[in-house]
Simulated assay, not measured.
Amino acid sequence: MGKVKYYYDPETLSYRKIQRKKRTTFKYAAMFILGSALFGFLFVFISSQYIESPKERELARELQNMELQYKLLNKRMDDAIAALENVEERDNAIYRLYFEANPIPEEQRRAGFGGINRYKKFEGYDNSQLIAETNKRLDVLEKAIVIQSKSLDEIAKLAEDKEKFLESIPAIQPVSNMDLTRMASGYGYRTDPFTKVRKFHFGMDFTAPRGTPIYATGNGVVKRADSRSTGYGKHIRIDHGYGYVSLYAHLYKYNVKVNQRVKRGDLIGFVGSTGRSEAPHLHYEIFKDDERINPINFYYGNLSAEEFDVLLRKASLENQSLD
């Protein structure tokens, strides 16, 4: 039961009981409820603005962690791009230059992606720019890696071809120096031993005793081993590929057969004096794209600088050839 309240009535000089009207009670109750609701709303609003809930704190931590991870990812991409740029520089300045291949343009390596906005799905968030830029850098990096990977595949193929080319090109003297009597005649105008007329000599003559070994000057396939070419007598022609063919003439006998594959340094025949020859010697020629060229430029494989200098001086003398 609620407390009964009285008030002093001066007219009757007595205390009278306070009678509260129902409307007044309802008004006070409504004001109380409204005040409580307003206070509750203000409390919730203030709490939501200044006081984080456990869920909000958890989400905030996740957001901070995400931002940190994106920054770390960008740092790792910086390191990856720096390493890739180093490989690209060597690719253009060393590898492709060595193998005589055109460098890959920088704009091709760093080209973006045109057309539709690939990063629209990242828009509308607090960290949209960070996420979009990170994904854009990642896409460019991935593309650059693909381009570099293909370039290295090409370099590997060029290296394989270069190795094959270097093994195939004529590069040694066909007669060993210890078996050589002398270098009788070089490439250029010489006196014909039979007509005594000055004419162009398209090969080099190496004098050596009959039966002296003759070696293939590069890897290749024997295309001819016969005496059906005027003046050459028994001779061998080796196709080295890349437009190069070497010819060995006036042989005593063969040590190879047609279509046989040979390697540089293989014994292919023996010095003789067959055909149009004045004395036992090897007449040696090199063809490039069906044109005869000076063999003096193809002895870097087994001669020292001093030996090559001596050979060059002797080959330059305009003397009499042996064929």
Rank of each mutant, 00 (worst) to 15 (best):
D139T: 09
L303R: 08
G112D: 02
R110M: 06
I94P: 00
R210F: 04
K22L: 13
Y187A: 02
Y98S: 14
Y242K: 06
Q64M: 08
Y252A: 10
Q108V: 15
K157V: 09
L72T: 13
D161Y: 12
G112A: 03
E88M: 12
Y119S: 04
K263S: 13
V245R: 05
F270M: 07
Y248E: 07
A305R: 15
I116T: 11
Q49M: 12
E56A: 14
G269T: 13
A156L: 11
A93V: 10
L68D: 10
T212D: 04
S304H: 02
P280M: 11
G203K: 03
R76C: 05
E307A: 10
S14C: 12
A279V: 15
L38E: 00
Q69I: 06
R224S: 07
T274I: 09
L251N: 11
H235N: 15
P193S: 07
D239Q: 09
Y189E: 04
N177F: 09
G275E: 03
I268C: 06
K75L: 13
T207Y: 00
K22C: 00
L68F: 13
Y70V: 14
A249E: 03
Y15T: 12
S227L: 00
L166Y: 10
K150P: 00
G188Y: 01
P54L: 07
P295K: 01
K143Y: 14
L311Q: 05
A159K: 14
K21F: 05
G35L: 13
R210I: 14
M31Y: 12
K257R: 14
I236Q: 03
E52Y: 11
A159G: 10
M66A: 14
I268P: 01
D289G: 06
K150V: 08
T217F: 03
I147M: 11
E100G: 06
G124S: 09
G2R: 10
S185I: 01
R109C: 00
I94C: 01
I147H: 08
N135D: 05
K253I: 00
S304W: 02
N135Q: 12
I131A: 09
Y284A: 04
N127L: 14
Q173I: 12
T191R: 02
D9L: 01
D239C: 06
R261Q: 15
Q49W: 04
